[in-house]
Design a protein around this nucleic acid. Structure first.
Length: 206
DNA sequence: CTTATGATTAGA
DNA sequence: CTAATCATAAGA
């Protein structure tokens, strides 16, 4: 293998998910993200794991989505090109990691709610402290914390790194449930747009 | 400028 | 159940 080929490599094991993969409705991407591998090559080292829980946020019509209140400084990335990160700060202390979807510039995104870490556990522990293994990256705020992701990565291109996704093991039993923390969204709150692997100890509580 | 609140979490 | 804690958005 040549040095040039090695440099191309963010795609490692399975193929790297490309922009066209994200250029679909969030409702299609969210369940498809289960089983995929999320990687972050941070300055401190690599963190990687399998996504076990997601939530879909559709375009302006979805009253639970940030984009339903129009384009603002915070949610601008949602209105841009699919395949970028949308990272926002919430409740004065947590970051949430989202993947921007499409189609096209339709402002949709998928929230990554829980990951089963496979690589970089020691690094995650430095950031998260001595929590049970199953909770290292369980819950959206904890995923961002374990991965060391904050707003400095808002808008980052998943096709350029340092964060990207690759194919992973096909999920077996997938459950669909109502989304968390969106009771204010009326009829939209009742939709089962939260997806998770059944019986996986790494999904968030609630 | 002021004010309310949130795609959360940990702990009582 | 509530506190923590602040960027953001909306309103005056």
């Amino acid at each position: 293998m040549t040095a040039a080929a090695a440099r191309v490599a963010p795609s490692a094991p399975g193929g790297m998910l490309d922009r066209t993969w994200f250029d679909r409705h969030a409702l299609e991407v969210a369940p498809d993200l289960l089983g995929k591998r999320l990687v972050h090559d941070s300055p401190d080292g690599r963190i990687a794991g399998i996504i076990v829980e997601t939530e879909a946020y559709a375009g302006p019509e979805d009253r639970a989505a940030h984009s339903s209140r129009g384009r603002t400084v915070r949610n601008a990335v949602m209105f841009g090109e699919p395949g970028h990160l949308y990272v926002y700060f919430i409740y004065g202390m947590h970051h949430c990691l989202n993947v921007v979807c499409g189609p096209g510039s339709k402002p949709e995104a998928v929230l990554i709610r829980a990951v089963r870490l496979e690589e970089g556990e020691a690094l995650a522990r430095l950031r998260r402290g001595s929590v049970p293994e199953a909770q290292l990256a369980s819950g959206p705020g904890n995923v961002a914390a374990a991965y060391g992701i904050d707003r400095s990565l808002n808008g980052a291109d998943l096709a350029a790194g340092p964060v990207w996704l690759t194919d992973g093991p096909a999920p077996k039993d997938v459950l669909a449930r109502p989304r968390v923390g969106v009771a204010y969204a009326g009829e939209w709150a009742a939709r089962h747009w939260r997806f998770m692997l059944a019986h996986d100890p790494h999904v968030s509580r609630r």
